[in-house]
Simulated assay, not measured.
Amino acid sequence: MVSYDELGVRPVINAHNTLTVLGGSLMDPAVTEAMSLAARSFVDLNELQAAASARVARLTRNEDALVVSGASAGLLLGALAMMTRSDPRAVGQLLEQGAAALPRTEILMHRAHRIPYDNVLTLAGARVVEFGNAIQTQDWELDAAIGERTAGIVYVAGSHLSGAALPFEVVTRIARDRDVPVFVDAAAQLPPRENLWRFTQAGADLVAFSGGKELRGPQASGLLLGSRAYVDACRQHAFPLQRFGRPAKVGKEEIMGLLTALDLWLERDLESDLARAEHVAATWITELSDLPGITATRDWPGEAGGPWPRVRVQWAAGVHPPALEVAARLAGADPRVIVFVASECAFWINPVLVTDTEAELVGAAVGRELGRTAPAS
């Protein structure tokens, strides 16, 4: 068995977040066992996806569901579905002539919701049309943006992006009046559990969640939930069909691993998880507040608007080196600790993903790095 050591790759302590570049999250042994068991047999992927879809839909209180290879894969399939709906002629036109042959290729987004991941919409052949501005959005701006070529609306969920955007209920009301589907990118919007059905019950046609973040399933997995009509429209483009969603294939191992992770997460004591995170954060604050020139405070919510605490470690300019330099030193030390740079003189440390032992190591590593840096004279 090949190991990280053999490759010369050193694992890190993740005090940042459930980032793809850091491997998402860590899987429960039951999840890896389910994946290992799935890897030992051949299976008809169409049958497996149908059975998995029915199970996920029931557990998440949705009409239909599809296991995909990540939230971005869900966004890709959702864009294709909104452009073609369930029209086999449109699917054929897309395959033979490209998206330019379709009557609907415009996907509307709040300007305040533009994120690095929405480039998969253009990969699908859509054109993103912005409405509103970075400071505020009026409901008439969305209504005016809807036209004959509008395929759908993408709404990026999360309190960190809500300030300049229309309330979700306003978006779904306007979309419903104009017969336009709404796709919600909710990749990191768990918990609460209710989000698994809240968006669709409030009018969303499709919603995507990452499987490798809070659900703690395989990193290359995700959930696409929604109405039967639009999830089925996504299936018309998805693996195992030889269509545009084929590169975003999800294997039998990921499907079974994600089903197991979903079962475990729905039974998880989230209140206990939150209490533990608060305890770790409070311990870090106590330890780090004694460092020269350092202010350590509880920050809320988490990086993607999640309901988790984190600790902001901050100092005045000139008291310590820039935060990027401090973060680089922490990442190169032993143990390697990854933190989230907030500004030139601040970074966050996240208590959610660290074990109890790692929490002590993070506190000690940050203390060593900032404690040994003498204040500027």
Rank of each mutant, 00 (worst) to 15 (best):
E6H: 08
L7K: 10
A15V: 04
A15K: 00
L19E: 01
T20H: 02
G24P: 13
S25K: 03
M27G: 03
A30Y: 02
S36D: 13
L48G: 11
L59F: 08
A65Y: 10
L66C: 03
S69G: 03
A71S: 12
A73L: 13
L75P: 02
L77D: 02
G78W: 03
A79G: 14
A79Q: 04
A79Y: 10
M82G: 00
T84N: 07
Q93R: 15
P103S: 08
P103M: 15
E106Y: 12
M109E: 13
H110R: 14
V120M: 09
L121Q: 04
T122E: 14
L123G: 09
R127A: 10
V128W: 01
Q136W: 10
T137C: 07
T137S: 15
D139Q: 15
W140M: 13
L142E: 09
D143E: 03
G147V: 11
R149C: 00
T150Y: 08
T150P: 07
A151Q: 11
Y155W: 05
Y155E: 01
Y155Q: 06
S162E: 03
T172N: 01
A175P: 02
D179R: 12
V180T: 03
L190C: 07
R193L: 04
L196S: 06
Q201F: 00
A202M: 11
A202G: 15
G203D: 00
A204L: 06
K213N: 15
G217C: 01
S221A: 08
L224N: 12
L225F: 11
S227K: 10
R228G: 05
V231D: 09
D232I: 09
A238I: 14
A238G: 14
R246I: 10
V250Y: 08
G251K: 02
L264C: 13
L274A: 05
A275C: 04
A275M: 05
A277P: 03
A277Y: 01
A277R: 12
W284K: 11
I285Y: 02
S289Y: 02
D290C: 14
P292E: 05
W300T: 12
G302F: 03
R312Y: 06
R312V: 08
A316I: 00
V319N: 10
A327H: 06
G332I: 12
D334H: 12
A342L: 00
C345Y: 00
V352P: 00
T355C: 05
L361W: 08
A364R: 13
A365L: 04
G371L: 05
G371K: 14
R372N: 06
T373M: 09
